[in-house]
Write a protein that binds this DNA or RNA. Sequence first.
DNA 1: TTATAGTTTCACAGTTTAGTCATATTCATT
DNA 2: AATGAATATGACTAAACTGTGAAACTATAA
Lengths: 228, 228
Amino acid sequence: MNNKCTVLVVDDESRMRKLVKDFLVKKEFDVIEAADGEKALDIFFEKKDIDLIILDVMMPKMDGWQVCKEIRQYSKIPIIMLTAKTDEHDELQGFNLGVDEYISKPFSPKILVARVEAILRRTASAKTGEKINAGGIELDVAAHEVSLDGELLELSYKEFELLSYFIINQGVALSREKILNNVWNYDYFGDARTIDTHVKKLRSKLGSKGEYIKTIWGMGYKFEVESE
Amino acid sequence: MNNKCTVLVVDDESRMRKLVKDFLVKKEFDVIEAADGEKALDIFFEKKDIDLIILDVMMPKMDGWQVCKEIRQYSKIPIIMLTAKTDEHDELQGFNLGVDEYISKPFSPKILVARVEAILRRTASAKTGEKINAGGIELDVAAHEVSLDGELLELSYKEFELLSYFIINQGVALSREKILNNVWNYDYFGDARTIDTHVKKLRSKLGSKGEYIKTIWGMGYKFEVESE
DNA sequence: TTATAGTTTCACAGTTTAGTCATATTCATT
DNA sequence: AATGAATATGACTAAACTGTGAAACTATAA
């Protein structure tokens, strides 16, 4: 999947860096380490082929938020933040700063790797102008367009976001909460039934293909194409 | 089920280590031994492919709690604690430290193995795309789907949750209380007989495979596939 | 400002499901 | 085999959930 993607791991604790590095190396990633925020910035601006940054929040001199803010002025590179404990305020701050994922220590390295791969998959498809096809529904992420059997479909912003989320996660049962957190924002506190309304519209716009959006009673929705 | 999962067994008594090791090896696990807490930490941070740790509480130099605390700063790896006798205070402490299971000596090695397998199944299924097969019943946690010999089975939300819980804990006897706490919520105050009704429905939907859900008289239920 | 499209909330109706209860059955023990 | 206790079962009711249309609200552009 990845032709040696390069990940920059920033943490002041060498043991933690080593832990993360070893797991990523095992999964065929190139890993560069940085012991503090300043070094991280140096490396990032010097080497130009870094694909993702894993950033510890708690660091001396320059903390993770500052590093993130600095980088975000120049780059949209995916950033994963590591924080000591689940702290909702942190999480909100992170998403405002454009953090892509947020993992609280302690974490399972396997999960870390899974998140890294998921993010790179996501950004890869957005970059290369790749199109995703699911049962005749063609999604052009870069162009923000959807075609039904070649015919362009008019979708609103939210409708597109929702359909993208469904198609990217096809075959996976998605709870309303999960959908809200991903398609809306983590700080959205509205009614979960809003989803239903959007699903209704999507289904009607998708015509017969609307059936791919399945209802999972008591749980949420799932996008699935029959013949697979 | 497991492609040679590696278990780290930490106990100062070599006889106890050997006992646990022999049973795990018989079940196709790789086993690494450590005679004290410090060695355990060394091994854990050096070798990165350990899937589960079995940890004795009573050890010289560094006791099990300390080892657990140390590891939990870096990893969510499943930890099973062995203690000399059931002591509620210990159990609470362990729970706060993030211990996954708690087994009091003396224990039946069979139970130990069953718990190890249950925990690994649990963590494995958390990873996406993992399917669990138990005697022709295939559980796809991500898709929220169950197949019987390849044939998709229609289950309600609760039925699916209950069956998942049974299959993840296959081979483990489950009291009604435990089932209520895990499949329902901790604040559920309804009748425990509700479980019976759901078991009834599950059994009938599972057809001949319904027999895998065994009744343990005066206690609860156990999911077990004959030939195992 | 007004018009327009998009988003969200709400209430009602129609379904599905969960849980209860009474009765039948099974089990362990004597 | 008889007994008492626990479980299985089927029918029923209450509760929970979803689909839908319309109204309220928001943001945007003319």
